[in-house]
C-alpha cells in the first residue's frame, strides 16, 4: 500500500513538474544528443557515425540535433529532417521504402532457403540403412552408448 502511494505521489510529481520544465527549456544534455547522433551518420565522411565523428562539421550537426531537441522535435522528425537535408545516407539503415525493401527481405529469405535446403539434404535418403534400425531397437542403453562413443573417440583421428 505504501508503495502504491509512493508511485502515485511520484506520478503526481511528474505531472506537476512537466509543464514547469517546458517553460524553463532546460539545455538538452550531451547524452540525449549522443543517443540520437549514434543513430545518424556523418553526411561527408562515409561510414562514420555522427556521434564519434571528430570534425568541426559534425560538431555543428550535433548542435543542430541539440537545437531540434530543444524545440521539442522527436527522434523520427529529426532523422527525417536530416534525411531530406543531406540524403538517405545519413540514416544508419536504409529507409523502408521502394527499392530498399530488398535488403530487408534478404535475412528472412535466407532463413527460408536455409530451412528448405536442410529439409532436402536430410530427407533425401529413402533407404534406411541397417545401422539405423539397429540403433533404434533399444530405447535406453546409456552404457552401451557411452561405450560406442568411447570407441568412436578412440578411433577419431585415424583415417
Amino acid at each position: 500500500m505504501k508503495r502504491v502511494l509512493l508511485v502515485i505521489w511520484l506520478f503526481f510529481l511528474l505531472i506537476v513538474q512537466t509543464p514547469g520544465y517546458a517553460q524553463t527549456e532546460p539545455p538538452v544534455s550531451d547524452d540525449e544528443v549522443n543517443r540520437l547522433a549514434s543513430e545518424l551518420y556523418c553526411p561527408v565522411c562515409e561510414n562514420v557515425p555522427l556521434e564519434v565523428c571528430p570534425t568541426k562539421a559534425c560538431a555543428q550537426w550535433r548542435e543542430l540535433i541539440r537545437e531540434k531537441l530543444a524545440l521539442g522535435w522527436n527522434d523520427e522528425e529529426i532523422k527525417a529532417y536530416f534525411a531530406t537535408q543531406y540524403g538517405d545516407q545519413v540514416l544508419a539503415v536504409p529507409p523502408r521504402r521502394g527499392f530498399n525493401w530488398l535488403i530487408y527481405l534478404v535475412p528472412p529469405l535466407t532463413l527460408v532457403a536455409g530451412i528448405l535446403i536442410a529439409i532436402r539434404v536430410i530427407r533425401k535418403p529413402k533407404t534406411i540403412p541397417a545401422a539405423q534400425e539397429v540403433s533404434n531397437e533399444g530405447p535406453c542403453r546409456m552404457a552401451a552408448e557411452d561405450f560406442i562413443s568411447q570407441i568412436e573417440n578412440d578411433l577419431e583421428g585415424v583415417e
Binding site: D88, A92, V93, P94, F99, L102, I103
Partner: peptide
C-alpha cells in the same frame, strides 16, 4: 553490396549500418 546496388540503380546513396 547493397549501397552499391542502390547507388547504381536508384542513384540514392544509403548506409547499411550496425542496426541492420
Amino acid at each position: 553490396l547493397f549501397p552499391i546496388f542502390s547507388e547504381l540503380l536508384t542513384g540514392q546513396k544509403v548506409t547499411v549500418g550496425p542496426p541492420f
